[in-house]
């Protein structure tokens, strides 16, 4: 459903230019949850912003469901890391979730019902009248996930979605993501710098090298479901995969020549 070929992006020009993406090829099929890991500053966010149509890459092509991405695609939603800035503080939680649905041609009642349903799925039933800043960080991120769910996107992009919450909340949100994903059979692309998280959540882990980013590893995660924070993490296959991904991420660091 998502095809990225030879994606290349350079910020600026001249001697101050920054070559962020160095020819990325990636193919994601319907219903997959793909995690993208890489060292910080490797261009993960650039990749995500290109797919979301928020940024025009300087080279390569991206097609979503057969149509090339040149502006923000209709059936795509994003969950940003910085929930406090991505939710609108002047709107109630319910309005935050319901607003994007106008584009779907739903009337007021339908929008409200869809928002309620999505909030219920993330465990925030009855919170729609509150304002985002009245909720804790983890709850705010649940609201942004609900907003994305209600939108029923064919592709959900998540940019370090659990990077700004504490460890306990993080585990809850990881499980929430797995749950809603099974429920909706959505395609998800999740970007993270956390190796454990990528293996725990993903069906596939794609490892990027340092900027200019290229794909240096693409591993299938074959772990028994349903996944569980304790048992999955002590599964030898998990431990093995984690080490593998870790080596790929770190391996690039110890060989800077290979990256440049």
């Amino acid at each position: 459903m998502l095809e990225i070929s030879n994606l290349d992006h350079t910020y600026g020009s001249g001697p101050g230019a920054h070559h962020a993406l160095g020819g990325i090829d990636l193919r994601v099929t319907q219903g997959e949850l793909v995690c993208i890991v890489g060292p910080s500053g490797c261009g993960k966010s650039t990749l995500l912003r290109s797919i979301a149509g928020l940024l025009k890459p300087t080279g390569g092509t991206i097609t979503l469901n057969g149509t090339p991405v040149d502006r923000t695609p209709d059936d795509l939603a994003v969950v940003f890391q910085d929930y406090s800035r991505s939710l609108f503080p002047w709107m109630s939680v319910g309005d935050n979730v319901a607003l994007p649905l106008r584009r779907k041609g739903m009337d007021r009642g339908q929008r409200r019902a869809a928002a309620e349903e999505a909030l219920e799925q993330v465990g925030l039933a009855g919170a729609s009248g509150k304002y985002p800043w009245q909720l804790s960080g983890g709850m705010q991120q649940r609201v942004s996930i609900a907003r994305a769910l209600a939108y029923r996107p064919s592709l959900l992009l998540m940019d370090e979605p659990f990077g700004s919450v504490d460890a306990q909340t993080r585990e809850d949100l990881e499980d929430l993501t797995l749950r809603v994903r099974n429920h909706h059979n959505m395609t998800i692309l999740l970007i993270t710098h956390d190796i454990d998280e990528s293996v725990y959540v993903g069906d596939r882990v794609v490892v990027l090298a340092k900027a200019p980013a290229t794909v240096v590893g693409d591993l299938r995660v074959d772990l028994p479901g349903p996944r569980d924070q304790i048992t999955t993490r002590e599964n030898p296959a998990f431990v093995h995969l984690r080490a593998e991904v870790g080596r790929l991420v770190r391996g690039m660091r110890s060989h800077p020549a290979a990256a440049s």
């Binding site: 994003v78 800035r85 609108f88 907003r147």
Partner: peptide, 20 residues
């Protein structure tokens, strides 16, 4: 990020102006 959220969810020009 507010503006990017608006673009990511495909807000119309009017929504962008009035809501963001």
């Amino acid at each position: 990020l507010h503006l990017e959220t608006a673009s990511a969810f495909g807000f119309s020009r009017g929504q962008r102006l009035m809501r963001v």
